[in-house]
Design a protein around this nucleic acid. Structure first.
Lengths: 195, 195, 195, 195
DNA sequence: CATGAATGAGACTTCATTCAT
DNA sequence: CATGAATGAAGTCTCATTCAT
C-alpha cells in the first residue's frame, strides 16, 4: 500500500483551488474540499488554520512562483527591457495556462483578502511587485519606455488588463485562445491601439 | 393607502451600495442595509426579491447608465474615433468618481453575478458592449486603429485595466489620483509604453 | 357599474375556502385570499378578525347548515331510524358534493381549531352532535339499533369513516365516485362487512 | 472520531413526535425538538434533511411497522378472515396505545405530507395497503365478507373510523377508553349498527 | 497525525397584521 | 368602508470549526 503521507497538505490546497474556482470562495464548503482531496474534514485543519488561510496560501504560493521567475528575468542582462516586458507577460500566461482553476481563483478572490487587509502582507507579493518595477524602471532609464507614465499605474494597468482577459478565457476558452491573447496583450501594452 | 414617504426603493439600493462596498456582498447584512436606508427589514423585500436581486439591480442600473452615455457618444459624428475612445474612458471615470462605493462594488462583486450565470443576462450589459464595439470598429475602419488587434480582446483589455486601477484608487485615493489615472490610461491605451 | 357592496364578506370567505383547500391553512396567504376574492388585503381585516377567524367561520357556517338539516330530519316522524341514518349520510355527502373545496378544508383543518381549543366552542357544533345523537338514540330505543354499541363511539366511527372517504374522493374523484361511496357507507354502517 | 453518545438519531425523531403532537407540525420549532432531544440544533440536520423529513420519517417508520405486522398476519393460515380483520384492528390500536403522541401526529399531520405529494411515495405505505387488501379479498373469496362492498372503500372506511376515534381518545382518554373502542370498532366493522 | 460527529451562532426571508390616507 | 405599503418578530437552515477518540 502506497501511503499518501507527505501529500495530504498538497492534496488539500489543490482541492481548494478546484473548489474555490468552481463555487467561489464563500460558497465553497470545507467538506467539499476535503472530499475532493480525499481526506477527512479534520485533516484540513491539521494543515491549515482555517478557510481563509487556504486562500492566503494559494496566493502566497502564486506570488512566490511569480516572484522567483521575475527575479530570474530581471537579473538577465541579455534581454532588452521590451523583451523583458514580453517575458513578464509570458510568465503570467504560462502559469495560468498550466492551471486554469488557479486563474479563476486569482481573478475572483483577491478581493476577499484585500477586504480583510491581509493582501499586502503576503511576503512575496511585495517582492514580486518590486521585481516588476525594476524591469519597467530599467526601460524608462534606458529611454525606451515613455517617461510620462507612472510606473505604478502602468503596473496595475497591465496587471488588470491581463487579469480580466484571463477571466474571459476561463469563461470561454474558445473565443479567447491564449496565444492570441498573449500576442494582443504584448502588442497593446507596447504600442497601444493607434496605428 | 399609506403613501411612500420619500423614496424607499432608491434609499434601499443606495444603502446596499454603501454596505456592499464596505463589507463585501457576502458579509453585508440585510439588517444593516435596512438600517442605513432608515427602513424596516421587511421593506427591503417589498422592493427587491432578495439579497442577490439588490446586487443585480445595482449592476443593471450601472450598465444602463453606461449604455446610454456610450450610445450618445457613438452617435456623435463630430468626434474622431480616438477622441471617442478618450471620452469612453472619461465616462467610466466620471461615473465612479461620483460614487466611489459603486466603484468598489463594481470591481469586487461582478464575480458573484457571473458565478450564478446572471451577469450576461443583464439587459443593458450586452447593449453597452455593443456600443463600445461600434466605436472601436469605426476606428479600425477609418484606418486609425491597429487592425491586427482583436476588438473583443481590446475591449476586455481596456476594461480590465480600468477596473483594476479603480480598485487601487478605491483602496488608496492619495497615491492614485483620478486625473493622473485618466491621463495615463488614455495614453497607454492609445500609444502603449514604448516611446 | 354594478357595485359589489354587500358581497365582500361572502367573497372573502369563499375565497378562503378555495385557498385553504389548495394550500392548506398554514401555507395559505392572506394576500392570495384577497386576490382571489378580488378585494384589498386590508378588507379581509374589515370583515374578519384574523386568519384563524376565517377558518372558524367556515366551520361555524358548516355546522350551522348541518345542524339545521339534521334538526329537520330528527323531527320527522314518518321515517324510521334506519332511514334517518341513511338521510344523515346523504346530507353529509350532499353538502360536500356542492363544494369539494369545503370538503378538503373540512377533513384537513379541523385539527387546527382543536389544537387551539376553539373547536368545541363553535356554537352549532354541539347542537349538530345532539341532533345526531337523538336519531341514534331513537334507533336504540326502538330496538332497531344494537344496544351494545356506545352512541358516542358510533357517531365518531361513522363521522371518521365518511371524513376519510371524502378525502380520498377529493384526491381522486374518478376511483371514488360519490354515489358508490354513499351506497357503501350506508351499507357498511348498517350491516357491516360480514355476510 | 467523536462517538455517538447514546442514539441521537432516535432521540431526535422521538422528540419530534412529542413536539409535533403537542404543538402541531407548523408551530413545532426545531429548536424545541433539539431541546427535548437534548441535542444541539445543528444535530437535527445531521440526521434529517429538514423539518419535513422528520415528519416523513415518522410516517415511514410507522407504515413499516404496520406493514410488517400485517404481513405476518396475512400469511397466517390458521385464522379466519374475520379473525384477521379483528387482529388488524388490534394491531392498530396496540401501536398507538404504546405511543399516544404518535397517534396524535398520525391523525393530524398526514394532511401535510399529502399536500406535498410525498405521502403516496412512502415505500411502506403501499405495501401496508396491499397486505390489508389481501385479507379483505380473502374474506370475499371465501364468501364470508359481503361482495357488494368495494374493497378499497371498505379499507378507507375502517381506516378513517379508527383514525377519528383515536383522535377522540387522544383528546379525551377518559370518555374513550381503548378497550371499549376496540370492541365497538370490531363489532361495527363486522355487523354494523342494525340489530 | 487522522477522523467526522457534534456544535450553535447567525442571517435570510416570510407574511400576518396595522394604520394613515 | 377601503386600501396596500410598511412593518418586524420569528424560525429554518448552513457550515466553519472543534475535540474526543
Amino acid at each position: 500500500m502506497r501511503l499518501k503521507e507527505g501529500n495530504k497538505e498538497k492534496d488539500i490546497i489543490e482541492a481548494s483551488i478546484t473548489v474555490f474556482a468552481e463555487h467561489g470562495y464563500h460558497k465553497a464548503k470545507i467538506s467539499k474540499i476535503a472530499e475532493v482531496a480525499n481526506v477527512a474534514i479534520g485533516s484540513v485543519y491539521v494543515y491549515y488554520k482555517n478557510k481563509e488561510d487556504l486562500l492566503y496560501k494559494i496566493f502566497d504560493n502564486l506570488w512566490e512562483k511569480l516572484y522567483l521567475e521575475y527575479k530570474k528575468l530581471s537579473e538577465n542582462t541579455y534581454l532588452s527591457p521590451a523583451e523583458k516586458l514580453d517575458s513578464m507577460i509570458d510568465i503570467f500566461f504560462d502559469i495560468f495556462t498550466e492551471n486554469p482553476s488557479l486563474a479563476i481563483v486569482f481573478v475572483n478572490e483577491q478581493n476577499h483578502l484585500m477586504l480583510n487587509g491581509q493582501f499586502q502582507f503576503t511576503e512575496f507579493y511585495a517582492k514580486f511587485l518590486t521585481q516588476a518595477e525594476l524591469v519597467v524602471q530599467e526601460g524608462v532609464d534606458k529611454n525606451i519606455f515613455a517617461d510620462n507614465v507612472d510606473i505604478d499605474i502602468f503596473r496595475f494597468f497591465v496587471f488588470g488588463a491581463i487579469r480580466n482577459l484571463l477571466q474571459q478565457w476561463a469563461l470561454d476558452q474558445k473565443n479567447f485562445p491564449l496565444n492570441k491573447l498573449r500576442q494582443n496583450v504584448k502588442y497593446l501594452t507596447k504600442k497601444g491601439i493607434l496605428k
